[in-house]
């Protein structure tokens, strides 16, 4: 079980690590500015496309089916996000006193209900072919 709520100061290392993570590649990129040769030519700077001149812009519009994946993902990711705080409810000693029908923890029962509802949604999405790659 978690003890005290975590103080903000414990997140200071995150910022330092973030800066450290930026310094290393920036130093490498600064180094190649000095030591690497740089003689740009038009052919050298062109996009690779099987050796020919690139045809049209590459920023294509992707199939709308692709965005259905994103929507289903958002739904299930939110489900997982709800499960994370649920662990602490489940692990709470006081919560384990509440039993349903004498055998099931109340927290477990509620989460079971939640998962079943979402599973119905998943089956619906699969049946409607929302999760078919085209």
């Amino acid at each position: 079980m978690a003890g005290e709520p975590m103080a903000v100061v414990n997140y200071i290392p995150l910022i330092i690590f973030l800066i450290m993570g930026a310094i290393v590649p920036i130093a490498a990129l600064a180094a190649i500015k000095i030591i690497a040769p740089n003689k740009p030519k038009r052919q050298k700077l062109s996009i690779y496309e099987g050796g020919l001149k690139p045809i049209r812009d590459a920023k294509i519009q992707y199939s709308v089916q692709y965005y259905l994946f994103a929507i289903v993902f958002v739904i299930f990711d939110v489900e997982v996000l709800f499960l994370y705080p649920w662990i602490y409810v489940y692990a709470n000693k006081a919560m384990q006193q509440f039993m349903i029908y004498g055998f099931m923890n109340y927290a477990v029962f509620e989460m079971l209900l939640f998962i079943v509802v979402l599973l119905v949604g998943l089956i619906y999405a699969i049946k409607k072919e929302a999760l078919r790659w085209v």
Binding site: F17, L18, M20, G21, A22, V24, P25, I26, A28, L29, A31, I32, K33, I35, A36, P37, N38, K39, P40, R42, K44, L45, S46, I47, P54
Partner: peptide
């Protein structure tokens, strides 16, 4: 390190340069 540094002419320069940096920050 001694290879020529090529940024494609049509690339989105800022994002192109920052992608490896973001990757490194993510691992840290």
């Amino acid at each position: 390190f001694t290879k020529e540094d090529i940024i494609p002419g049509d690339a989105d320069k800022a994002v192109y340069v920052w992608a490896p940096i973001v990757a490194s920050m993510a691992t840290m």
